[in-house]
């Protein structure tokens, strides 16, 4: 009976007042506009004529619609499709593995009866503070693991994030009532069974959150492709789109080099602003739907009532 009530949403007598509710609504509507309008602007710029942008600046309503930017990008459609495929694979496999590995690590350090939990918490937290720099890290992957040009080089480095592990740990500590664990133990359940059958289902919201973040990490990553991949077959979509932005950043921070290149006879050119915006759109691509997908797991643990009886 209780469970049914809980699932049917908040108690109608236990909500904010209608006035407050409409104030909240108005606030979020305005704020949402602030978030979505810049994105609309990017789309509009990507559909604008380049000369208009250079002479008049950005505009929400393009003077004339111009698809050159997308035509330019889609010339390379085979590579784009392939890279979407690479990124999709990396994102799905990576997120699954990392979710399992991270929650397996987070559970023991969330258990107050585990004497070594402080040490292992510190062991993982320490990695957030110190790092040995790019070069030694690169050597581990390239020389020890020999992962150059290997798709696992895009997956492995992002498997464990100390930040996420500590979030999961805190959540476990907070929301899994120790009474539940004890009653399970009394029933003779092993730690692994408790973990998979009780703790995990109870933690859906945080697992969904971390899965979402992990998905974004994999999707948005371009750096791993930059350092490990030279082969077009394994390029991620983000790198494919981002590398021109990298070229631009290089030019912007190396004005001496630009002058030198042009003096030496080289031509420095990079795509114009409409193409850059189109690239941003292609790079974001399907991932904007990730949030609604994970959102449906933002539900209360259904078994709380069941375990408690």
């Amino acid at each position: 009976m209780e469970a049914v009530k809980r699932r049917s949403g908040p108690n109608p007598f236990n909500g904010v007042s209608p006035v407050a509710n409409s104030l909240i609504n108005i606030f979020f509507t305005i704020y949402s506009l602030c978030c979505i309008l810049p994105l609309v602007l990017i789309v509009m710029v990507s559909l604008s004529n380049e000369q208009d942008i250079l002479t008049m600046g950005y505009s929400f309503i393009p003077n004339r619609i111009d698809l050159t930017a997308y035509e330019f990008l889609l010339e390379d459609w085979r590579q784009i499709l392939r890279s979407y495929g690479v990124t999709f694979f990396v994102t799905v496999v990576g997120t699954l593995i990392s979710l399992i590995v991270m929650s397996l690590y987070a559970y023991p350090i969330s258990r107050t009866d585990f004497p070594q939990r402080k040490f292992f918490t510190f062991f993982i937290f320490f990695t957030m503070l110190f790092n040995g720099g790019l070069v030694p890290w690169y050597l581990v992957y390239v020389q020890m693991l020999e992962l150059r040009n290997n798709i696992w080089a895009l997956i492995l480095p992002l498997i464990v994030s100390a930040f996420f592990v500590l979030i999961i740990r805190t959540f476990f500590q907070q929301t899994i009532p120790s009474a539940v664990l004890e009653s399970a133990k009394i029933d003779g359940a092993g730690e692994l069974r408790i973990f998979f059958q009780i703790v995990m289902p109870l933690s859906l919201p945080v697992l969904a959150t971390v899965a979402l973040f992990s998905t974004l990490n994999y999707w948005n990553d371009w750096f791993l492709s930059l350092v490990f991949i030279t082969d077009d077959k394994t390029l991620s979509i983000q790198y494919l789109m981002y590398k021109t932005l990298l070229n631009i950043q290089f030019m912007a921070s190396n004005s001496n080099a630009v002058a030198a290149i042009s003096a030496a006879g080289g031509v420095v050119s990079y795509p114009n602003e409409t193409v850059r915006m189109a690239m941003a759109i292609v790079g974001i691509g399907p991932i904007v739907f990730a949030y609604p997908f994970f959102q449906k797991y933002f539900v209360k643990g259904l078994t709380v009532g069941a375990v408690k009886g």
Partner: peptide, 23 residues
């Protein structure tokens, strides 16, 4: 059991973080 659970994560941290720290 706890040690076994933490093993993959810990191994990863050693490989990805602690060895490069010598840098």
């Amino acid at each position: 059991v706890f040690y076994v659970m933490m093993l993959p994560g810990a191994a990863f941290l050693i490989l990805n973080n602690y060895i490069p720290m010598l840098g």
